[in-house]
Amino acid sequence: MGRPVVLMPGPMHPAVAEGLADHCELIRLWEESDPDAVLAARRDEIVAVATGGTLIDGAFLDRLPAVRLVASFGVGYDRIDATAAAERGVVVTNTPGVLDDEVADTALGLLLMTVRELPQAERYLREGKWQQSGSYPLTRATMHGRRMGILGLGRIGQAIADRVAPFGVSVAYHNRRRKDVGYRYYPSLVEMARDVDVLMIVIPGGDSTRHLVDAEVLKALGHEGIVINVARGSVVDEQALVDALRTNTILSAGLDVFEHEPEVHPDLLTLPNAVLLPHVGSATIPTRTAMANLVVDNLRNWLTHGTALTPVPESARLSG
């Protein structure tokens, strides 16, 4: 009997292919001259998929009836229809835990950059304005005493909460359900936005959270409010955010993610009260390697023992 066959629809971190080399036959679909023909010919042999962002929906899985595991690179899995997968007996895994600290560090750095206008101050220096016009103007905002509302108090949200405490920042949160933590819980996102001045977005993407942060939420946040998004761009109504920044409905925004990546709303690029990063939340060599290794571990464990290490909630009941 031959080795199990795993499909890789698009390029991934090289550690994934390296880690699977001795455990399976790996089909690198993007390298094939006729991908559709390969899928048709191998449809009954492919038992697992390793993906770094390819859309995996019900139609895709219907083309591969032997697949029983989709191993995703990243903590977010909004490009995978986990419900459709579960309905077909397919387990979906992601890579939680290994990137929490890195993303939380990025969130804190982005918050500091946004509150204190540090990128703007650096540009001021580089453009020679310090010598020409004197000191950079005093910033309106400071970290100490701010009130943060975390949208999505999961592992990363908790890590962010731990990091802001020494700055004298209070924490509240909005989830679908209350958690056993010492922070104030708001069942309503709008109500939380009214009571805080930093909205930290760490909630997964997908249809259920699309444009959850809309014009109403931004208006409730108010003119001293700051939006930080290290989750998914789809969670925020980007046009509403642009309008809120332009009209000073809120003070500023710090964004690591965007609604149509890598395209960025052109108005965001011109707004002086927006700090923008190119989705670098987990982008360090050690963290991305750890994520790749967890993809490999999930696949190896599934192929060897029939169980997944980190199944997502929608498919956890199928693991084991």
Rank of each mutant, 00 (worst) to 15 (best):
N175E: 10
H279M: 02
H223G: 08
D100L: 02
M1K: 05
R28C: 02
R43Q: 10
A292M: 11
L268A: 08
V90S: 07
L309N: 04
D81N: 11
K129G: 02
A141K: 07
Y173K: 05
I27G: 00
T249N: 09
V242K: 03
V280P: 07
D180M: 11
A308Q: 04
R147Q: 11
V242L: 06
R232P: 03
N298T: 03
N273E: 11
E191P: 00
M291A: 09
P266K: 10
S315K: 01
T270P: 01
D197A: 09
V242T: 11
D214C: 14
A253H: 08
R88M: 12
P272R: 14
A17P: 00
L125D: 04
V6E: 01
P65W: 09
W130A: 07
E122Q: 15
N301T: 14
Y77R: 08
G89V: 07
V213F: 06
L268T: 11
D267E: 15
L271K: 10
H279W: 09
G134K: 07
E122T: 14
R155N: 13
I80G: 00
P4D: 08
Y186N: 01
T209A: 11
V196F: 04
P137L: 11
Q132G: 12
R300G: 00
R116L: 15
V198E: 00
G233Y: 03
V257C: 10
A172I: 05
T289A: 01
A82K: 03
T289Q: 10
D44Q: 10
L112K: 04
V190G: 02
G58P: 07
V5S: 00
M8H: 02
R146N: 09
D237E: 13
P9H: 01
V198I: 15
V67R: 00
G109I: 03
L111F: 05
R146T: 10
L69H: 05
G254T: 11
R300E: 06
T310E: 08
Y136T: 07
Q158G: 00
V70G: 06
G222I: 08
G182S: 12
L212D: 10
R126S: 04
S208A: 15
L241I: 12
V115F: 03
T93K: 04
L299N: 03
P187T: 13
L221D: 02
V181H: 09
Y183V: 05
G76K: 05
M200H: 05
V75K: 03
V16I: 15
R288A: 01
R177F: 12
T83Q: 15
L29I: 02
Q131K: 14
A50L: 06
Q158I: 06
V70W: 03
G10T: 14
V198L: 12
L111P: 01
A193M: 08
M8Q: 12
